[in-house]
Structures are given as C-alpha cells and as structure tokens.
Design a protein around this nucleic acid. Structure first.
Length: 555
RNA sequence: UGGGGUAUCGCCAAGCGGUAAGGCAUCGGACUCUGACUCCGACAUCCUAGGUUCGAAUCCUAGUACCCCAGCCA
C-alpha cells in the first residue's frame, strides 16, 4: 500500500524538522501567539494563530497565548477579552498557559539592571529629537550619545530613580549599548525602557517605566521556554537585536525568531489603523460588523471556524509578500456550508403569484429535503397554497434567450411542488408587474408518479399566507479596489450593505436559533443574526452568495 | 548611494541538480426538481542575461523589480 499523500510542507516546518534532527531545542517545539491587546483580531491574526497553535499541535508541542502588553497607553482589557474569545472560537486552547509580558515586568527590570552591571546598557538623557539626530540615517552612521559612557554606578542610580518616578515622562531612557555605526538601525543603541506614566490595564500604577518590544519580547520568549518565535517579515531586521538581548543576558537554549509574510486580502484592509478608523468614523457598525475582516466580524457574518482554518491551511506559509484573493476565503465557507447548512426557501424581492386553478383556501404539506448532499439531514414540510411569492427576477415578460425562468410562454417548476404556467400578467398604472396569474399542472407534483416532465427551470417560493416577513442584509466587499491598503486605492464600496426589509421566508427559518446558518435555495448562505434575530422579527445576514454562472453569463 | 528580505500560472503555493505538485480563479462539457453541488477536460518551463553540468526553477556570476527599516509603537 503506497498511498502516501504528497504533503506540502512550509519552510517553518522544514526548519523545525531540521532542529528536531539536530536536537537543537531538545526535541521540543514550543510556540506562542503574542498579540498586543490594542485592537480586535482579524483574519491575518487567524493565519498566525493557525501557524503557531497548529504547528505546535502537529509536533505534539505547546503554544502559549501571551499578551504583549508593554505599552499601556494603547492597550485595554476590552481587547484582551475579545482576543481570548476569538482564539477559543477558532478552536485552539492554551490550557493553563496564558501569559502577559506585563507579568514579567519585575524580571524585565532585573534584566535591565543586569545589562547595566555588565556595561551593556546606559541611561540616556537625550531628548527624542536629539536622539533622532544622533541615530544617523539609513546611509550614514549615527553618533554616540554623550551619556553613553556613564559609570555603572551612575547608570544604576539613574535607572532606579527612573523606576521610582523621579523623572518626567520622556526625560530619560535606558538604552542598550551596541553599535551606533551599525548599518542595521535597530542596533544603534536601541531604547529598551522609557518613562511613561500611564495606567496599565493589569499593573495599574505600579510602574512608570515600560520596556520596549525589542527588549521584552526575546526575554518573554526565553522565560516561557519558547523554541520557535514566529513573527512577521517586518521584524526580520530586529532579529539581530532579539539575539543580542538573549546573548547579553546569557540565556541558554535560546528561542529562534522566524519570520513569515503576513496575510493580505483583496478588497480588504488589515492594518489596525484602518480598521480602527472604520469603526471610529462610523463607516461600519463596530469591530464585529459583518463586513469587517475581524474574527468577530466574520463570526457575525456567519463564517465557521472550520472554514477559516481551512482557508489558513490553503493559503500556505512563505516569505514573499502576497495578497490572497477573497475568492479563496469565499470558496472555503461555501464548501463548508454546502456540506453542513440546511436548505430553506426565502424570497428576497417578492412577486405575487396566484395559481388560478388551485382551490381557494386549500393548503398542502410538501416534503422538502434539508440537504440534498446529506441524507441524514432529513426533511421538513413546506406549505403550498393558492397564493405564493417568487423572486421578482424569476419572471420576465420579454426574456432573453437561455432564460430558464418563468415567462409568459415558459413553464417552470416550483421546487418541491408543481409545474406552473403563466396565464396573465397584472400591472399597476405605472406599468410595473405586481402579480402574475398562473395555472398549475396537478399531475406534476414533486415525488409523484407523474412528476417526470423535464422542466428547465426550478424556482424557490414561499406561501403567501404562511411566509414570515424578514429583514435580510446583503453584504458586499467594503472596498472597491483590490488593494485598499494603498492610499490611492482606499475607496469604500457605497453598496457594501443592502438591507432588504420585505423579504419572506418559510416559517421554519423564522424559528431559527440566532447564529444558525442556512442555504437559502438559489440565493446563498445566510445566518440568523446572532444579536438581532428573533422569531417575531427575523434578521438574516448573507454570508456569501452561491456561485452564479447565470449572472456571470449576463455580463 | 546603507542594511535586511523576496522573485515559480490571473491569485496563493510545492519544488532543495534528474527533467514544473496542489488549491483558488478562468474557460469548455456532463449531470441537475438549487443556472448550486458533483463530475470530466483545458490552463506555466520557473524575473533577465551569461556560465557550470550529460542534465538547472534548483549551483555560480552579473543585473532588474518589488517589500521592510531612521516610534521614547508592536
């Protein structure tokens, strides 16, 4: 049996495999997902979550959740709560390993003292502007700070007093003493501690000095025994500093930083700055607006965690900057929901149909399968009667060739029911079609012995007296262009949300529990809105439309 | 003009010297009581130019393009 699957590996797995072979980290694989709690997680974070938690799982290793909360001026508990919820929702578990960089503040401070004692850090009094001047440029080396050669004693004293709050915000910093002439700007005596009087969401007012990312991150990783510290490309030239910190402090079995390309999606912005602006400027209803690429937005939209994991699996991991087409994401949710979602009939833009030869007052219960791709899903009853509604676009007086729907001279089948024929078109004074009178073929009942006539078109419908009026929101991309992250392409789609309030859905759909997903036959996948949907006033969000080769052919 | 990266089909992405995986998209066609699903079929010689080799996307040389870095942000 040689049914060996061809399994593609990514470069990070290659590195880990090599490390396992050489025993670099003693056969351990320990990763971490380190979000800064200053915003909501988005689909790009999902890529990182899948990478970190997923890789750890594959190698029977562990993955920690660690909040990188070293800048209290931007962070908040609201975000730490939402982040935990989102990671859990995606299906990952950090067990008892949820940490905070702020949990290491004491240790981080001690390390600062140690660096000073080793002559590898100094307190600098330069102002921010001076610091910038001394830093040099991309092509010219920087100059050493006049405070660079303070004695260890003086540095120790000053650092202690910085911590004790004796100095004003921004008046002094602790700097690593590396190399002002380095072609890598990150190594030009980078700041590792700054004075900042801001209430921290966890440590409150305990500290008035806070460590910088480049300093806190490697130490946090080392403390937790992380083996592979995966981050995005822009930190690539921070790696020498990451390594410097660990080396200078003498950590053994040092974690290694590995960088991969962050996710970009067409017609989507991913930067926190842009996402925050959308929320704050009221362009969307909040972080969980169904049009947002946030995890909470996708959840509200009706995406399943499985579809998101599948998406992350498909897009792969590499180091080249890339932008994945949203079509890929949409494919993933369609595939998942096609298998899982029960079908239902909902008429979004109703057109009244009266079956003239159907007895007034009569109703019939018809058998309707819940999912043609899953027999186990069973069936339900739908009610048929003399007055029905179909989709406005499913009737045309002057239809183009290949229009398979109802026309004055073309029959159609009503799904699960009968074949009908148009007998008369009723219009209002303005000439709008307000009703179509039809006749039905009693012999054509679905499932019946004489139902075999082949009819090209099949329409979904609802019974007028039984249907429940509903609100349906149709979503489209938030942005018109492929790459709205580019300033010149940042153009909001004015039609990203269309709210239909006169939709009619079959009774079973109105009964849906909030959060339940359906396929509305011939329309797409929809979810009963998690917060607004009620049986009395149903509200559905369109997750994604069905593929529509007819619409495509029309263009 | 400094440093760090990346370049394989429209979009992702395998490939690690032995003769270009896969997915998405697209285009044909079959099937269909969802114009859905499913199924069949089509779809690249690897940034450029040299070189090494029996053989190169993979090695060497020289270019080119794009991305990131001068926050007391992460």
């Amino acid at each position: 049996m040689s049914n060996e699957e061809i399994v593609s590996t990514n470069f990070i797995q290659n590195i880990i495999n090599e490390d396992l072979k050489t025993g670099k980290h003693g056969q351990r694989v320990h990763t971490r997902f380190p979000p800064e709690p200053n915003g909501y997680l988005h689909i790009g974070h999902a890529k990182s979550i899948c990478l970190n938690f997923g890789t750890a799982k594959e190698y029977q290793g562990m993955c920690n959740l660690r909040f990188d909360d070293t800048n209290p001026s931007k962070e908040d508990v609201e975000y730490v709560d939402s982040i935990q919820e989102d990671v859990k929702w995606l299906g990952f578990s950090w067990d008892d390993r949820m940490f905070y960089a702020s949990g290491y503040f004491d240790k981080l401070y001690e390390c600062g003292v140690e660096l000073i004692k080793k002559g590898k850090a100094f307190v600098c009094d330069l102002t921010a502007d001076q610091m910038r001047e001394y830093r040099g440029t991309l092509t010219e080396p920087g100059k050493e700070s006049p405070y660079r050669n303070r004695s260890i004693e003086e540095n120790l004293d000053l650092f202690t007093r910085m911590k004790n709050g004796e100095f004003a915000d921004g008046s002094r910093v602790l700097r690593a003493k590396i190399d002002m002439a380095s072609p890598n700007i990150n190594l030009r005596d980078p700041i590792i501690y700054r004075i900042l009087r801001a209430k921290h969401h966890r440590t409150g007012d305990t500290w008035c000095i806070y460590p910088m990312y480049d300093y806190a991150h490697p130490i946090s990783d080392a403390i937790e025994g992380i083996t592979h510290s995966i981050c995005t490309l822009e930190f690539e030239d921070h790696r020498p500093l990451y390594d410097w910190v660990l080396e200078a402090l003498g950590f053994e079995d040092r974690p290694q930083q590995i960088e991969f390309a962050r996710l970009n999606l067409t017609n989507t912005v991913m930067s926190k700055r842009h996402l925050r602006a959308l929320v704050e400027e009221g362009k969307v209803s909040g972080w969980d607006d169904p049009r947002m690429p946030t995890i909470s937005g996708l959840r509200r939209r009706g995406y399943t965690p499985e579809s998101i994991l599948d998406f992350c699996e498909r897009i792969g991991i590499a180091k080249s900057n890339s932008t994945v087409e949203v079509a890929m994401l949409e494919h993933c949710i369609r595939e998942d929901l096609n298998a899982k979602a029960y079908r239902g009939m909902a008429v979004l833009r109703p057109l009244k149909i009266v079956i003239v030869n159907y007895p007034e007052g009569q109703t019939e219960e018809l058998e309707a399968e819940n999912n043609p791709n899953d027999e186990a899903a069973g069936s339900r009853k739908v009610l048929f009667s003399r007055e029905l509604y179909i989709e406005q676009e499913d009737f045309m007086e002057d239809a183009p060739k290949k229009y398979f729907r109802l026309t004055p001279n073309q029959e159609v089948r009503l799904k699960f029911a009968y074949i009908i024929k148009c007998e008369e078109v009723i219009k209002d004074e303005a000439g709008n079609i307000v009703e179509v009178r039809c006749s039905y073929d009693p012999e054509s009942k679905s499932g019946g012995a004489t139902s075999g006539r082949k009819i090209k078109g099949t329409l979904h419908w609802v019974s007028a007296q039984h249907a429940v009026k509903s609100t349906v929101r149709l979503y489209d991309y938030l942005f018109i262009n492929d790459n709205p992250e580019d300033e010149n392409s940042y153009v909001l789609n004015p039609n990203s949300l269309e709210t239909l309030t006169d939709c009619l859905v079959e009774p079973s759909l109105a009964e849906a529990a909030p959060g339940t997903r359906y396929q509305f036959l011939r329309q797409g996948y929809f979810v009963a809105d998690a917060v607004e949907h009620t049986k009395e006033k149903p509200v559905f969000n369109r997750v994604v439309g069905l593929r529509d080769s007819w619409a495509k052919a029309q263009k």
